[in-house]
Design a protein around this nucleic acid. Structure first.
Length: 281
DNA sequence: GACATTTGACCGAC
DNA sequence: GTCGGTCAAATGTC
């Protein structure tokens, strides 16, 4: 599998070209943030928004969009795993010093396969709590042929384990809880060790703002709500940066992209997806 | 020792 | 027979 819908040669390469452009701009943006050049960064955000918009339109024109891709057909072909037919596909860019595939949940790798026609093998992960809690969520991760720093991540099934529930402030800040971490069970320790999900220095959790976020929730957020505080999204934060840039138009104003564009970023946006929201303090 | 990862084998769909 | 997905034993890491 190499993308979305598996069709259309020129459209596909056009889309790949646009996405490569987005990636290079994100990296440039990252570099300029280090140099503290907000004006240049803002200009880049505008370009990013335009490029993402073009990419989405191209993706919409690809044959098979919204229908059954190769992976869907293969998923249907699978039998008897009990995995609900829930599938989300994301393309994730890895950024320096950022775990590219950390989505805040703990996964255990159970297999890897060379995929026909793909340059890189596909890795298979399932929820760490599959046996202890009967969680049937799985995900498949594969590097994109065009750019090794891009990963196609396909989620199958919904988490039924405790970690799927939104973490409380105490869970996110165990050191702040009375009694410390002595009583924490192994699962929590595992989650902390395998996923550096705690807020980074400089990121403060604001419990009052801790709400499950869905793509629709973002689309429904009033433009003014974005000023001053930019939540970082799992799985990588990059998606959020990209989405956020989609909200920015030229100048100081902001505009919302329509729901369809958000839904296109999440192949199954209808089902609630719990994001972790941190506010830069 | 407990847990995660690796890797070859196996299974079912096509 | 081929392919993608999963299993499970062997191995590695903490």
């Amino acid at each position: 599998m190499d993308g979305y819908g598996g069709g259309g040669g020129t459209k596909k390469s056009e889309l790949a070209s646009e996405l490569a452009q987005v990636l290079s701009m994100v990296r440039e943006l990252e570099a300029r943030m280090d140099q503290d050049l907000p004006a240049a960064a803002r200009e880049l955000c505008g370009e990013l928004a335009n490029t993402i918009d073009r990419s989405i339109r191209i993706a919409n024109d690809l044959p098979g969009h919204g229908g059954s891709s190769g992976s869907d057909a293969q998923a249907k072909r699978r039998k008897g795993t009990g995995t609900p037919c829930v599938r989300r596909q994301l393309r994730v860019a890895s950024v320096k010093d950022m775990a590219p595939l950390d989505d805040g949940l703990s996964w255990r790798k159970y297999g890897q396969k060379d995929i026909l026609g793909a340059k890189y093998p596909r890795a298979y992960f399932r929820c760490t709590h599959r046996h202890s809690q009967g969680c049937l969520a799985t995900k498949h991760v594969q590097r994109a042929d065009a750019d090794p720093l891009l990963y196609d991540v396909v989620y199958h099934g919904a988490h039924a384990c405790v970690q799927a529930a939104h973490p409380s402030a105490e869970e996110l800040h165990p050191g702040h809880a009375a009694g410390g971490g002595q009583g924490h069970d192994q699962d929590q320790q595992q989650q902390q060790s395998s996923s550096p999900h705690a807020p980074e220095p400089g990121l403060e959790l604001q419990p009052g703002l801790l709400e499950p976020m869905t793509p629709d929730a973002f689309a429904a957020t009033a433009p003014g709500d974005f000023t001053g505080c930019f939540p970082l999204l799992s799985p990588t934060g990059v998606e959020w940066q990209m989405m956020r840039s989609s909200h920015m138009s030229a100048g100081n104003g902001m505009e919302l992209v329509d729901h369809l564009q958000f839904d296109d970023l999440f192949t199954n946006a209808a089902e609630p997806f719990h994001w972790d929201l941190y506010i830069r303090g």
